[in-house]
Design a protein around this nucleic acid. Structure first.
Lengths: 258, 258
DNA sequence: GAACGCAATAGTGTCGACACTTTCTTGACG
DNA sequence: CGTCAAGAAAGTGTCGACACTATTGCGTTC
């Protein structure tokens, strides 16, 4: 009933993580493992995280566990209450919408900067990136779609020339990835996604900043509305009981497990 | 007999934490202390951080030191290299400009959202906040100017209704605070700062999003150019030797111990 | 005299232990 | 019967120690 070895690494995303990170073994492993548990809701929203149990199940001591949790706290995955330990971030519609809004802000700004600054050659990279993956794009597994979509948007951030934007976007992506995956499994935006991406590329080529920004904004905002549905779905997944329509209540959910 | 109440450490920044806690705050103390060292350049850019020495000088063990450093790493103050430890973030003009650009992006977006969403009563809070501090604003100590300026911009972020924007802005502020303080000591923008802030408030009252955003953008961009000069000044401060015009070289400086 | 390799030193990454705090259990009292 | 309190159990926060890695210093070889 525990989770013996989940190191199968299902999500090997872009994670360049650049300058600031790459700890030695245990810590890194703990980080990846715990993040996976969070993304997959094996640790449930607002649940208290038991360091000792985690340590035992990962077969390492509490020190690297705590380092990983601290890192996850800085990234907004969990929160830390003084003498009571770490808690899984709560899952609320508003919180997610705020994140999407932030994402939209960052991406739109990145696009605009890219239009102003990137060389034609750079824009060409965006064009060819999209050109390479557009065929059969939606026929892939959800994880691949997600990775390539993130890659696309991340490339725009890179081409803005501001590495801080890349960092921010990566952090945001990590936090909304779980819900995006569910969304994609719903296929709730199918080929409008493809045509939008193509249009964005065209706008980039034409250096039409305003137009591209508008496309991006709509693209992301459209995603937000789908998110609401995906969120309900996620909650059903988490609390297998089909509590019909109370998706945002987190009271004391049955403290099973032992 | 273990913890004497010896607060003779060189930390006196925001210590408003004299509440009912006595233990369990080593980590927090370490965080504040190290951050102060970083902000004041007592730990110099690209310098390797010696955990043991820090631990000894703060009279706590390495565990909370490492927790604090991990936190600072997530916030971009320091970086971590696998088996070699933590290093102070490098200090480059480009890096700072990137941060200012990010700040501009966040703040402009926040202002726009505030115009769209905030109630008149909320806008009134901004108005009264500024009204309260505008008198004698530039005649205060640099730290007070800085705090109130940050408060002003942070209030806009709050009034945007998106707490993520507040978080982002706070993180950015922390990273550029050291250079902003130096800037303010230069008085390099004097009363244009006041008139600009006033104009921003007026734009908010009039819900003139475009106008306010433009004011903000210029306000921040103007600051950026002053930053370049402040940076040179900072570097002189750090490396007391007046190496004439090699502001971005970081050699090895012997630690003078204290 | 310089480059190389080896030993000694310094420093990080991780561990198990312990003190103190929170939470749960049990029993007395109204 | 419910409320509260004291003790027990569980859990976090911090510590000192140790293993392993990087760095430094020294002696050897060419």
């Amino acid at each position: 009933m525990k989770n013996p070895e989940q190191t199968s690494s299902p999500v090997a995303f872009v994670e360049a993580e650049a300058e600031t990170r790459r700890a030695a073994d245990s810590s890194e492993r703990a980080y990846n493992a715990i993040r996976k548990l969070l993304i997959e809701f094996q640790l449930k929203p607002e649940e208290r995280i038991n360091e000792m149990r985690l340590a035992k199940s990962l077969a390492i001591s509490r020190t690297p566990i705590r380092e990983a949790l601290n890192r996850l706290a800085s990234e907004g995955f969990v929160s830390l209450t003084p003498n009571r330990g770490f808690f899984v971030r709560s899952l609320s519609t508003e919180g997610l919408i705020d994140l999407y809004e932030l994402r939209s802000i960052i991406e739109c700004a990145a696009f605009r900067l890219m239009c102003e600054r990137a060389s034609d050659e750079h824009i060409g990279r965006l064009q060819s990136y999209w050109g390479k993956i557009v065929d059969g794009y939606i026929d892939q597994p959800a994880d691949d779609i997600l990775a390539e979509d993130e890659g696309f948007h991340l490339l725009i951030a890179e081409l803005s020339g501001n590495p801080e934007l890349v960092n921010q976007l990566q952090a945001i992506n990590a936090r909304i990835r779980f819900i995006r995956r569910i969304q994609i499994e719903h296929r709730s935006h199918d080929n409008s996604l493809i045509s939008t991406h193509s249009a964005i590329v065209e706008a980039a080529v034409a250096r039409a900043a305003d137009e591209g920004v508008e496309l991006l904004r709509q693209h992301i905002e459209l995603t937000v509305s789908a998110t609401q549905q995906a969120l309900k779905d996620a909650l059903l997944r988490v609390y297998s009981q089909p509590k019909p329509l109370q998706p945002l209540r987190f009271g004391r959910s049955t403290s099973s497990n032992g």
